[in-house]
Design a protein around this nucleic acid. Structure first.
Length: 766
DNA sequence: CTATGTAAACAAC
DNA sequence: GTTGTTTACATAG
């Protein structure tokens, strides 16, 4: 309000639109889809599944054995093609029946089972995106599938890795990422999906500035039954605009959303904005979108529609669901509860961060979605001789795994790393590669994973089939200044390694226009034809918050990414995952990005605030954007993307600490995630779930040498890690775990009593 | 000082 | 009017 005298004049900013090329595919996208949230066709499919689930039958092929050392715990081997949801339902029922005395915890692992095809990737990816969004959505049991984010369970095969996004709502609507199995929602009770689902959209109230004012506000509140959120209507959500924007964008399958849809999503999920907030909140949303580098604007091919996306490197794929669970079981989430402080709290950060440890109470009312299950992390030895065995199983994305593991363990050593802020440094300043800044955090990371890796991007675009590389190549135009520059590679150093997204790019110092880069990199974009727009140089200069960069643009950008080897280079983030699932690559990265989501104190993680704090990292702001592929030193893995995004979030949700810390036995093997990745044993490829054989994928590892890191040896041949889920019927939780499977030949001692006869479960292994 | 929120001036459509 | 960008300022921590 204040009119500040100081207000600078702004001269024309915009630049002409880019030429758009249309992508054929895109077309559909172009349109803003609104959130119609509700949606889509997928239902039919879903229903089927659901139906099944209800039946609770265990599919054929399921094998259950008692865990040798854990009481009331059974190991359930699920064929890839089995309907997980139904299995979980059945197990839940079984566990409930047993109560505390009988088996009430189940470790679910994929046994590949049906050899069949790799699970197909879900429909999802494919191109359709927008248009299709329909995809398979599975709907969950949850209450409202509708719109928003629903995470659904996935069908068969999906165990681990996939993220399915199903999203119902197309872009607008949200889909969360799902972490497939991990999603608790399956259990029904927890559904957090869209808070309230919204419905309605607002009529948009009109102008921003008008006030709705309170007066009207309250009126609408829903009946209170639900308590939670309703109450919350009048309360401001504890999330920052940045966080809410991320939730909104991440709720869509494509991870992109038009401004209007963002408004709508927020209104739908946070009634406060619809009813109570001053109209100026929309201005704030826009402000945040422009301000934070993590938000990248892309235009549709035709140039008509602008979509806001989250730079893959920075995207933690946070969704409302992931972050918290409503206190009230029944009610939809209600983040809103909290107080209405004036300020929304720092929100996520804190909240998100959540370590499970934290007292819930402290955090506003939200609870973490996933309970930790430490105990489950017990390594399981696999008798089988071959290392591969589990192929079907999930590959755990490293990161994920790491995170999983670490979660509990972590605490021991580790530190929590914090996500560096994103340095969005914005353009200008890019720290030199060397720039030292990287600092601290990295260190941590260094070892482990770099959580930050950009990796993630993944999914988004999967839609576009194929092209992984393409995108890279594809030039996207940047709007602005021609800067585009592709970054030259910076040589930089590895240092960056760890940093978070930003880091990745570390070298990339070139900050340049952030956005520009982003465009480049983000997978999505690649895919799509979108252009990215965004910042122009101008910004760089500017001192605006965001910009902060310190350095002048290095100029170079790290473009390398692309240039380089195809596989490798691609920024992790970018990879569009063709199908995400497929991507086997281990990705460590994602985690980082988020900072492991939770781990990082929220702050960082969060959105990282894009706002650059200037000081923070030297990294260039863009760094993340660019995400230098391999380059980043340690990050190498980044290239790997996680197979699924899902994990990322998942992990986050867990609030795992750093990878490195993980206590699990298995872990010890790897010092860092990287190691894991590197290590062969994992067959990443084999991921059953992934649709694609990895073969295609490039695995990151090779290419980049880690920077300085010593790479560690890979896992022993006889061991491998696989991801599994732990269903605890005592508390209705479903969590991912990383299993250490030992093959014969290993040291016996290690094995210990807990060996499980995997052969029983997974004949195929043999 | 940082992160965030808010208001506002402008620009381009 | 909408969308996007950028400043300026306020404020909590």
């Amino acid at each position: 309000m204040k009119t500040s005298p100081h207000r600078p004049l702004i001269l024309k900013r915009r630049r002409p639109p880019l030429p758009v090329q249309n992508a054929p595919g895109e077309t559909s996208e172009g349109e803003p889809k609104r959130p119609s949230v509700q949606q889509e066709p997928g239902d039919a499919q879903v229903s089927n599944e659901v139906a099944e689930s209800t039946s609770c039958k265990f599919p054929v092929g399921i094998k259950i054995i008692n865990h040798p050392t854990m009481p009331n715990t059974q190991v359930v081997a699920i064929p890839n093609n089995a309907n997980i949801q139904s299995i979980i339902t059945a197990l839940t029922a079984k566990g409930k029946e047993s109560g505390s005395n009988g088996p009430n915890k189940f470790i679910l692992i994929s046994c590949g089972g049906a050899p069949t095809h790799p699970p197909e990737p879900q429909p999802e990816a494919q191109t359709s995106n927008d248009s299709k969004r329909t995809e398979g959505i599975t709907k969950t049991l949850g209450p409202k599938p509708a719109a928003s984010d629903v995470n659904l369970p996935r069908p068969p095969g999906a165990l681990l890795g996939q993220r399915w996004e199903n999203c119902a709502g197309g872009e607008a609507a949200g889909c969360t990422l799902n972490t497939s199995l991990t999603n608790i929602q399956w259990l029904g009770k927890m559904s957090s999906d869209g808070l309230g689902s919204c419905s309605i959209k607002q009529e948009m109230e009109g102008k921003e500035n008008q006030h709705l004012e309170p007066s009207r506000v309250k009126v609408e509140e829903p009946p209170r039954g639900s308590t939670s959120w309703q109450d919350s209507v009048s309360e401001r959500p504890p999330y920052s605009y940045m966080a809410m924007i991320q939730f909104a964008i991440n709720s869509t399958e494509r991870k992109r959303m038009t401004l209007k849809d963002i408004y709508t999503w927020i209104e739908d999920h946070f009634p406060y904005f619809k009813h109570m907030a001053k109209p100026g909140w929309k201005n704030s949303i826009r402000h945040n979108l422009s301000l934070h580098d993590m938000f990248v604007r892309e235009t549709s091919a035709n140039g008509k529609v602008s979509f806001w996306t989250i730079h893959p490197s920075a995207n933690r794929y946070l969704t409302l669901d992931q972050v918290f669970k409503p206190l009230d079981p029944g009610s939809p989430q209600s983040p809103e509860h909290l107080e209405s402080q004036k300020r929304p709290n720092p929100e996520l950060r804190r909240n998100v961060t959540i370590k499970t440890a934290l007292p819930l109470g402290a955090r506003r009312k939200m609870k973490p979605l996933l309970p930790r299950v430490s105990s489950y992390l017990v390594p399981i030895r696999f008798p089988v001789s071959q290392p591969l065995v589990l192929q079907p199983s999930v590959k755990v994305p490293l990161p994920l795994a790491a995170s999983l593991m670490s979660s509990e363990l972590a605490r021991h050593r580790k530190r929590v790393r914090i996500a560096p802020k994103v340095p969005l440094a914005d353009e200008g300043v890019a720290p030199l590669p060397t720039a030292g800044p990287v600092k601290e955090e990295k260190l941590l990371l260094g070892e482990g994973l770099s959580p930050l890796l950009p990796v993630q991007s993944i999914k988004e675009e999967e839609t576009q089939p194929g092209e992984e590389m393409p995108h890279l190549a594809r030039p996207i135009k940047v709007e602005s200044p021609p800067l585009i520059e592709w970054p030259s590679p910076c040589p930089s150093v590895k240092e960056e390694l760890s940093q978070s997204w930003e880091e990745d790019s570390p070298h990339s110092p070139t900050p340049r226009s952030k956005k520009s880069y982003s465009g480049l990199r983000s997978p999505t974009r690649c895919v799509s034809e979108m252009l990215v727009i965004k910042r122009r140089e101008g910004r760089e200069m500017s001192r605006s918050r965001r910009k902060q960069h310190l350095l002048p643009p290095c100029v170079d950008e790290p473009e390398l990414l692309f240039s380089e080897a195809p596989g490798t280079s691609r920024p992790a983030t970018e990879l569009p995952l063709p199908s995400e699932p497929s991507v086997p690559a281990p990705q460590l990265g994602y985690s980082q990005e988020e900072g492991g989501p939770f781990k990082t104190p929220v702050k960082e993680m969060l959105p990282i605030s894009s706002t650059p704090s200037k000081s923070v990292l030297p990294l260039s702001p863009e760094s993340w954007r660019l995400t230098p592929p391999a380059k980043v030193g340690g990050l190498e893995f980044s290239p790997v993307r996680t197979p699924e995004r899902a994990f990322g979030p998942l992990a986050d949700s867990l609030g795992l600490p750093d990878f490195s810390t993980t206590p699990l036995k298995s872990i010890p093997l790897f010092d860092s995630p990287q190691e894991l990745l590197n290590s062969e044993p994992f067959d990443l490829n084999s991921d059953p779930f992934s649709s694609c054989p990895l073969s295609d994928m490039e695995v990151p590892k090779p290419g980049y040498p880690m920077v300085g890191e010593p790479q560690v040896a890979s896992l022993p041949a006889n061991r491998s890690l696989t991801e599994g889920l732990v269903l605890d019927t005592m508390n209705d939780s479903l969590s991912k775990i990383l299993l250490d499977i030992s093959f014969p030949g290993l040291e016996e001692d290690l094995l210990g009593p807990d060996n499980i006869n995997w052969a029983q479960l997974m004949p195929e292994l043999r």
